[in-house]
């Protein structure tokens, strides 16, 4: 007992044995689930770099050998997807910036509103996070197609921008839609962060004679840099991966303005079935941007998910 030992006066030997057995079982399970989560991905990648013949002959998860290896599928998929990659990025980036900025502004503004009104507005924001988008699809389609055909109005203007084609105008309503429906979740994420900051920071700013805008720009924005990282990564992943709005507003997988998610389910399909080498290549390519972000900023991504709950 005189020694600083955490096990104290227990029977150390039996404890070690016990721990070891349990440890082994624990690690075995960890590895099993590692397989569970990685096998579909690994299989996909292996299939992507195999020739059709090799796909048919070898085990799906086995790596290609010799003649069975090809980059042809990936090359082909890349050609098919390159236009839609561009579409996805020029849609996702402004939409992410817009919703993140608005979310931060709304969360900051709400802290200035008296408690009762704040709760009311907050409820509306939270419900906005959970609303099934099906409930707004018909109005959305009608609004952008019939009532306010912004895409058609902007087409000549967009066509005159270098690197852009007229059809890219179809992405403008999509960007606005993503911003509007992204505001609730971004607001909630930022709000939880601003609530963790001491009230006295904003109050000190007021006493110092700073305007509300100055407090936002000089105090709140610099302090919330880490949170901007979290929300940006979370929201970019959401928008890039999104399908339903694009599906509603950009008609058809063969539309030139279609983002990646819209094109992917149609790639490599023919009357004779699906060419899985090509489909897996395309799936892998489509996932690359979010996978890179995820691998680089896994902690931020997890934090975004945690805060959402």
């Amino acid at each position: 007992m005189s020694q600083p030992s955490s096990t104290g006066s227990f029977d150390v030997a039996s404890l070690v044995e016990d721990v070891n057995l349990r440890r082994v079982a624990q690690y075995a399970l960890v590895v099993f689930f590692l397989g569970f989560f990685l096998v579909p991905l690994e299989t996909g990648i292996m299939t992507a770099i195999k020739t059709n013949e090799s796909v048919a002959r070898s085990l799906p998860f086995a790596p290609p050998v010799g003649e069975g290896f090809t980059l042809g599928n990936i090359q082909f998929a890349l050609e098919q997807l390159s236009g839609s990659f561009f579409n996805s990025l020029i849609m996702s980036i402004p939409a992410t910036i817009g919703s993140v900025l608005f979310g931060s502004m709304a969360a900051y503004g709400l802290t200035m509103v008296n408690w009762r009104a704040q709760m009311g507005m907050l409820m509306l924001f939270v419900v906005g996070v959970f609303v099934p988008y099906q409930a707004v699809l018909v109005p959305l389609a009608r609004f952008w197609n019939n009532i306010f055909p912004l895409a058609r109005m902007l087409e000549p203007m967009v066509a005159s921008i270098p690197f852009f084609q007229g059809y890219h105008a179809e992405l403008v309503p999509l960007v606005i839609t993503h911003i509007a429906y992204g505001i609730p979740i971004c607001t909630i994420l930022f709000r939880s962060y601003y609530q963790s900051l001491p009230n006295s920071l904003v109050e000190a700013g007021k006493i110092d004679g700073a305007s509300i805008t100055k407090i936002y720009r000089r105090v709140i924005l610099p302090i919330s840099k880490p949170m901007f990282g979290v929300v940006f990564i979370y929201q970019f992943t959401q928008i890039y991966n999104e399908f339903l709005f694009a599906f509603t507003l950009v008609t058809g997988s063969d539309a030139p303005a279609a983002p990646v998610t819209l094109v992917l389910p149609a790639i490599g399909a023919s009357t004779s079935g699906i060419d899985f080498g090509i489909r897996m290549s395309a799936a892998f390519l489509a996932a690359v941007p979010t996978l890179i972000l995820y691998v680089a900023f896994a902690e931020q991504f997890a934090k975004g998910l945690r805060t959402e709950a």
Partner: peptide
């Protein structure tokens, strides 16, 4: 002018910037 219980210093600014902040207005 007010001194807060938790001081409410702006964590991202230097002491100089903290003191100067109120003076800017």
């Amino acid at each position: 002018a007010m001194v807060f219980q938790d001081y409410a210093l702006y964590p991202h600014m230097t002491v100089r910037q903290n003191i100067r902040f109120g003076l800017e207005e």
